[in-house]
Design a protein around this nucleic acid. Structure first.
Length: 897
RNA sequence: GGGUUCGUAGCUCAGUUGGUUAGAGCGUUACGUUGACAUCGUAAAGGUCAGAGGUUCGAAUCCUCUCGGACCCACCA
């Protein structure tokens, strides 16, 4: 006996200490591994960047899925001798973070950001950032993530700020970034633009008006917003619409409610002939769709609603609120007899997700990334073309594959990416404007633009007050974390590599959620291709979302998230991780329940007790683990064979991202093969080789389990007495040849034992009563005789065991067929003959049917001709087996009389 | 409206390119357990693989449609 271990594994007693040990070892950093000769200088690299969690919130279970899966990969590759690097970091999440702080500020002090001013407000934001950042990092460590903290990054730290600035400047100089007009979603109350995904749609009752602009205009149009018609510059109809064909191309000067308009009739196939009058007034400045039409047809853009949500440049309506203007326009149309119809309809109103105010689409100057611009450095292809190419050619693979299609579809329809945001927190755009004259109020097109690292010398320069879309900086995450750009080596037009970038790029896997393929994955691909002329990662593994027990999305706003830390505290990190891995297949959502975590807590304890049993009963840390083949029992060969194929299968599973299957496979081996059978056998087989085999199996098992359950395995590894860390032990290889024969033979023993137990249970034989078992073993006599003691010992309650080569006459007996063998256990007086007969007859009927079906099948010429040979042969064998079984059945039924 | 995807045991999900009698965990029920483990053991019950049709010697798996759910995109002028 070596050492006392507690009866149950209590994770919280060990986890923090283990993580500290790992961290202090420095082995999370592959450079340290090389320096300490854990892996070779020139070993392959395996790099992953952690998708940086938003600092708006603590981690939820979705993050933990990501961490668990990636940690399996990283730990596996580290143990396989690679230079494994996993880079941690957090995302500043510009809009989201600013919103959180603004909300807090309003709740606590009833102040807006404008009350504080930019500088003070940003100080508040940074205070918040520091707090949540620390919480997130604490959580990441609790999950056991083997992240290299020496390379920790933040999308808004100094290095990343420099990188972002450089990227912007480079893209601007290449003409990929430009400034232009665009319709934005403007919230008049928040005084800010909203991203498309921040717009919510609310169904409401509205009115649908049909009217003519004036008497001179030949036909009527329909709209829900008559006041915007003051900004119309065209009327669009379907090119196939017979009613309006003759008007296409004509220009009308009309007086609309006292405001002069110039309207061109244009054709657009997106106009629905059956909706309204089949004609619509085009308002380029205040509708996204209309703006696009205006661009296509080179129409004038007339802005008639201002940032306050009031009419402007709209004749006598100027200064009115939008709703007032609508009422007046409607009244005017009715008075002049132009209104043809007013219908009540339901329509979707765009509202601000934050304040619920109606959104006004407005034209505004924004910065864009041109995705269609052909670039010399990309071989005269555009970012979009290149980004499609690298996926189509298979350089970047998606797991599961179906998301490739989603990516390609989305990319194909990609428009220029608007990267400016009218908020304060984030990367301020490194563009400076100089107005020609301070006295004159100049329009934007009279500004001089300078884009660069510093404010240029001279009078009157002001920096663009906008900041960049948060995805701009996170799009650079794969290379900005690896030291891009090293300003010293910076050369425009050439791939730039610093030491890290050279060594660890491109990364191997990106593990993320499928919901951000479009937002993030696509941007990373484009930006990496632009900046370093390489793909950012080779594989994109997409996990599903973690849903709550009701199948609802866990979200901060709903507050239905399960706190991972609470689960870790209660059940341990390993159990929590396993519950997220098993039953979670790529791309599919998974529901989470505490019960499932509890099940894996039980399993961790099982593993603990397996090790505890071995540690307390056997000598450990034997240096020479080479087993002597002569001394091996059947069970030994069996478990070694099983272990051998386990190593192969689990390795294969991890390599192919089948984490759930790998975990299940390991659990089955550990629980069903090792604990239930081999350890039980070992209690009765005190052979000389047992010690070695148990050492071998336990150590290999701990290694295989380590990526999945790092804490309990490392703890046990230490308890065994290893000074080195399991984390950097070498991944097991198949060492023994696969003992197929032994496997089949021992499976037979297992079947026999199970059968005896079943019979005892079925016939309610009390446990203390010994029975006599007679096995008609056929050709397996020798084998069974050699295992006779084992069969008696393994809780079968067999007192006397007879093994006979062939069938003898039976009296009253229960029986069971085991493969081709039979076991008879004469139990006079205890047997329910009627029940047994019924069972036999039922089976005989089943067999009859099966045989009939097979005969029909084999008579079918088509089948014999066309089915693969092996299948036909298998079917013939099957038929023979069924017939044999049937024959035997009949005989046995006779014995039961 | 366009697209993607899913529907398998009471619950949560596996089921690799079609191929013997469709699996696991949890839950349920019964029985058991003083020596690694009540965080345990042995077993049982529970499935016309959403429905209909088709392809095939053979379909949970491929195709079409219907029903139901999830998500993404577009957005009703």
């Amino acid at each position: 006996m070596n050492k006392e271990l507690p009866k149950a594994y209590n994770p919280s007693d060990y986890e923090d200490g283990i993580y500290q040990k790992w961290e202090r070892s420095g082995f999370f950093n592959p450079d340290v591994c090389v320096a300490k000769k854990i892996c070779k200088q020139n070993a392959d690299t395996f790099t992953v960047v952690l998708p940086p969690p938003n600092i708006t919130d603590k981690l939820h279970l979705g993050h933990m899925v990501m961490v668990a899966i990636t940690d399996i990969l990283v730990r596996y590759h580290r143990m396989s001798g690679k230079r494994a690097l996993w880079i941690p970091g957090t995302d500043h999440a510009a809009i989201a973070t600013q919103n959180v702080v603004e909300k807090k500020l309003w709740q606590e002090e009833k102040k807006t950001r404008h009350d504080l001013g930019r500088k003070k407000f940003l100080a508040e934001v940074w205070k918040f950032v520091k707090e949540t950042q620390a919480a997130i990092i604490h959580q990441l460590k609790k999950t056991g993530a083997s992240l290299d903290w020496s390379r920790e990054a933040f999308t808004l730290d100094a290095a990343r700020q420099a990188a972002v600035k450089r990227m912007f400047i480079e893209m601007y100089n290449e003409g990929v970034i430009y400034r232009g007009d665009r319709i934005v979603n403007w919230c008049p109350r928040c005084q800010s633009t909203l991203a498309d995904d921040e717009v919510e749609y609310k169904e409401q009752d509205g009115k649908f008006y049909t009217f003519k602009y004036n008497k001179n205009f030949p036909f009527a149009i329909a709209t829900t917003r008559p006041e915007t018609k003051l900004g119309d510059t065209a009327v669009a109809v379907n090119p196939d619409d017979e009613r309006y064909k003759k008007y296409i191309g004509k220009i009308y000067e009309v007086d609309f409610c006292g405001v002069p308009l110039t309207l061109k009739v244009i054709a657009d196939k997106n106009v629905d002939q059956n909706f309204g009058t089949g004609a619509l007034g085009v308002t380029p400045a205040h509708s996204m769709v209309d703006y696009e039409m205006a661009q296509k047809n080179k129409l004038e853009i007339k802005k008639i609603i201002n940032e306050e949500g009031k009419m402007a440049d709209a004749g006598k309506f100027s200064g009115l609120a939008v709703m007032e203007a609508r009422e007046q326009v409607v009244q005017k149309l009715i008075d002049s007899g132009l209104m043809e119809k007013e219908e009540n309809i339901k329509n979707n109103l765009s509202v601000c997700y934050r304040c619920g105010a109606g959104i006004e689409p407005l034209p505004s100057k924004q910065w864009f990334v041109a995705v269609d611009k052909k670039l010399a450095k990309l071989g005269n292809k555009s970012l979009k073309q290149k980004a499609i190419e690298v996926v189509k050619s298979g350089k970047i693979k998606f797991v599961p594959e179906r998301f490739t299609k989603r990516y390609l579809d989305w990319m194909a329809n990609l428009h220029d990416w608007c990267i400016s945001r009218q908020i304060w927190f984030g990367h301020q755009i490194p563009a400076y404007y100089q107005v020609k004259s301070k006295k004159l109020k100049v329009k934007s097109n009279e500004e001089i633009i300078y884009v660069g690292d510093e404010k240029p010398a001279g009078e009157g320069w002001t920096q663009d007050s906008d900041v960049l879309d948060t995805w701009f900086s996170s799009g650079m995450w794969t290379f900005s974390t690896l030291g891009w750009p090293a300003s010293a080596t910076l050369r425009r037009g050439k791939p730039i590599k610093t030491a890290d970038l050279k060594t660890y790029y491109p990364t191997q896997v990106l593990e993320t959620g499928y919901e951000i393929i479009t937002l993030w994955v696509s941007r990373m691909i484009m930006m990496s291709l632009f900046a370093v002329a390489q793909i950012p990662f080779e594989n994109v593994y997409l996990h599903g979302m973690v849903l709550d027990a009701q199948g609802k999305k866990m979200s901060k706003s709903k507050g239905n998230g399960i706190d991972p830390l609470a689960m870790i505290q209660k059940y341990g990190t390993d159990a929590t991780r396993m519950s997220l891995i098993v039953g979670n297949t790529p791309g599919n959502d998974t529901r989470m329940s505490e019960q499932k975590i509890a099940a894996f807590r039980n399993f961790a304890n099982k593993l603990w007790n397996i090790a505890r049993y071995i540690i307390t009963n056997y000598e450990l840390r034997i240096t020479n683990l080479k087993t002597n083949k002569v001394g091996l029992t059947l069970a030994d060969k069996w478990i070694l064979g099983k272990m051998n194929s386990l190593i192969k299968d689990v390795t294969d599973d991890i390599e192919h991202f089948r984490f759930s299957q790998g975990g299940e496979r390991l659990r089955d081996f550990t629980w069903n093969d090792l604990a239930d059978w081999y350890l039980e056998v070992s209690k009765f087989e005190a052979t000389s080789e047992k010690n070695k085999i148990l050492n071998l199996v336990l150590e290999a098992l701990l290694k295989l389990w380590h990526p999945f359950m790092p804490f309990v395995t490392e703890t046990l590894w230490q308890e065994i007495g290893h000074k080195e860390l399991l984390m950097v032990e070498r991944w097991p290889k198949r060492e023994m040849t696969h003992k197929l024969e032994a496997a089949a033979q021992f499976n037979l023993i297992i079947d026999i034992i199970k059968t005896i137990r079943n019979l005892r249970s079925e016939y309610k034989i009390p446990p203390e009563q010994k029975v006599k078992a007679i096995i008609y073993a056929g050709k397996q006599v020798e084998l069974l005789q050699s295992q006779a003691e084992l069969i008696k010992n393994l809780r079968t309650g067999v007192g006397e065991l007879e093994i006979k080569p062939s069938g003898a006459k039976l009296k009253q007996a229960a029986w069971a067929a085991v493969g081709e063998k039979e076991i008879y256990i004469p139990l006079a007086g205890l047997i329910d003959v009627a029940k047994e007969r019924a069972r036999l007859e039922k089976r005989a009927q089943e067999l009859n049917q099966l045989i009939k079906n097979l005969e029909v099948k084999l008579d079918n010429e088509e089948f014999v001709k066309r089915a693969p040979k092996e299948i036909v042969e298998a079917e013939i064998r099957k038929l023979e087996n069924y017939r044999a079984e049937h024959k035997k059945l009949k005989e046995q039924t006779r014995h039961l009389k």
